[in-house]
Design a protein around this nucleic acid. Structure first.
Length: 514
RNA sequence: CGCGGGGUAGAGCAGCCCGGUAGCUCGCGAGGCUCAUAACCUCGAGGUCGCAGGUUCAAAUCCUGCCCCCGCAACCA
């Protein structure tokens, strides 16, 4: 595996409070980032907010505040939520940051211009004043705007265009090339979808708006009548966070790193096509991986305000007394990477009870309570069969995690927990009455197994994984949440923790709800 | 013929690429155990694998046609 990883998420649009869609993406990216760190990579994990655009401007106007005030109020909602969800980001980019974001954006624009990729053209389109944007054929029904049921007016304005149309050939090569130098789409089934878009022909992309239609954005350099449209502004966050084209440029996490963008299926095409085309024009190497996730429904239906089924992440957190792990567990366990998923209160409660509380929590408890009755001392004997089983589990777990099938990684870990409960029943340590040494040996083996499972669960439910390790009293427990904590090859081996001699106090890991 | 995803036990899904006794989780029923958070373990009930053809000794799995559901840009950039 590569030693250096740069992983990003899409930047969120803070015109309202964060919702479950945002959370799904951040948890997914966080699990990836944590896993990469745990396997020993140097990781830079960046998220941020996309704060410009008509919708923000309009929302601000509605509320009678300046756009900057609106975003300054909303952005902390995202940062605060992600903090409490233990999203381990290293950098947060705000597109309204004139010191850290704008210089890169302006420099990139100039580079695109120098490369001849930007052309000013007169654009005539059907403009809907309700939507405050130009409509395409798809937005029309009987010549009227689908949302507002009004006929749009024909408006002509000058725009800067990015000549994406001429990039089709090499983009196709980039996206079909395997391995180094190629841009890999995960999951695989999304790749042909994107290639199909290229087949259908790429059109040039509008890169600016006239100042009349969009004021809240970054001005186009040397052209005060125009403001940058979302692409050059928002996508650029991935490199502005690294100070590209400025005097504080640090490309360590780009030129010499594996670059992974985690995004939703809605913006896949922009990240697969426009973004690499922009980078190439600016003479910057293209990213390596595009990890595309699906969307979340709520109770089986599309989340929408009108249906009233929008799930507020805050409610989920408070349902579990602020503990982020049940939600993190749910999203990782129930939503296959790349696929759509569903959030259901019944399901998350069910999973909390059966998986976290009854299987995982109870397993730890029954082992610790019995060991404590025997003075709490450990005696982990080396046994070839145990060593082999542990090695096999780690091998398949690592394969899943490295391949971004994280849901399989967590499921495999939990399946192992189930097997441990089964094994515990079979071993029936409570029946061993006369041989204390034998009893401790049997129980210690289970403690050692749980030590391994806690490591496997660490990227998903970090707080819980640490708490398990603390109760087990493993020597490295206190360091587990530090960013430089690495799961060493030794840690993956049976009985490798020679300094681990006693277990700690058993405590209820997950309490019954209500 | 816009594109894509999907239709497998009550629910959620795996299996399909590389055909060969239909599997997992939760839920449900019965039993076991009693170390443990009324937790854990075992067994069981429950499925015409969307429909119809075809290929084959054999199809959930391959081929053809059809039907149905859901997304298509996330609060409506």
């Amino acid at each position: 595996m590569s030693a250096r990883q740069y992983i990003t998420t899409a930047i969120d649009y803070p015109n309202a409070a964060p919702h479950m869609g945002h959370v799904l993406e951040k948890v997914l990216a966080d699990v990836c980032a944590r896993w990469m760190r745990l396997r020993g990579d140097a990781v830079r994990f960046q998220i941020g907010t996309d704060e410009h655009g008509v919708k923000i401007a309009r929302k601000a106007k509605e509320e009678g505040v300046m756009p900057q005030e609106l975003v300054d109020r909303n952005v902390p909602l995202f940062q605060d939520l992600y903090g409490r969800l233990q999203i381990s980001y290293d950098a947060f980019v705000r597109t309204t940051d004139r010191k850290r974001h704008w210089p890169t954006v302006e420099a990139l624009w100039r580079k695109l211009q120098e490369a001849g990729k930007l052309e000013k053209r007169s654009y005539t389109g059907l403009y809907c004043s309700g939507c405050e944007r130009f409509l395409t054929k798809k937005d029309l029904e009987d010549g009227k705007c689908v949302t507002h049921k009004v006929a749009p007016e024909e408006v002509t304005e000058e725009n800067w265009f990015f000549t994406l149309g001429e990039d089709a050939l090499w983009l196709k090569k980039l996206l079909t090339k395997k391995g180094k130098g190629g841009y890999t789409i995960v999951p695989e089934f999304r790749a042909p979808e994107t290639l199909m878009l290229i087949e259908q022909g790429l059109e040039d992309v509008s890169f600016s708006r006239s100042r009349e239609s969009l004021t809240w954005g970054i001005p186009v350099p040397d052209d005060p009548d125009h403001v940058m449209y979302v692409w050059c502004d928002a996508l650029t966050n991935y490199i502005s966070g690294l100070g590209f084209f400025t005097n504080h440029e640090d490309r360590t996490f780009w030129d010499d790193a594996q670059v992974t963008h985690v995004i939703g299926k809605d913006i896949a095409r922009f990240h697969a096509l426009i973004w690499p085309a922009m980078l190439k024009a600016a003479n910057v190497r293209t990213p390596d991986t595009l990890l595309i996730h699906g969307f979340l429904t709520s109770e089986g239906e599309k989340m929408s305000k009108s249906l009233g089924n929008v799930v507020n992440p805050e409610d989920v957190l408070s349902r579990f007394s602020g503990n982020p792990d049940p939600l993190r567990f749910y999203l990782s366990h129930e939503v296959p990477v790349g696929r759509d998923g569903d959030f259901s209160w019944e399901r998350i409660t069910e999973l909390y009870d059966s998986a976290l509380r009854n299987q995982l929590g109870n397993l730890l408890n029954r082992i610790l309570v019995m060991l404590k009755k025997e003075s709490g001392a450990l005696q982990i004997d080396s046994k070839a069969s145990d060593a082999k089983q542990v090695a096999e589990k780690w091998a398949s777990y690592t394969e899943r995690m490295d391949g971004f099938t994280l849901h399989e990684g967590i499921k495999l870990s939990m399946e192992w927990v189930r097997l441990m409960n089964e094994g515990f029943n079979d071993a029936a340590p409570w029946k061993i009455k006369d041989d204390a040494k034998q009893k401790v040996s049997v129980l210690s083996a289970f403690a050692e197994y749980v030590r391994h499972v806690a490591l496997m669960l660490l990227p998903f439910i970090p707080q819980t994984a640490q708490e398990i390790s603390r109760q087990l009293n493993v020597p490295y427990a206190e360091k587990m949440l530090e960013k430089d904590f690495v799961i060493t090859p030794a840690m993956r081996e049976w009985g490798s923790q020679k300094d681990w001699r006693t277990v700690g106090e058993p405590k209820i890991l997950f309490a019954p709800l209500e």
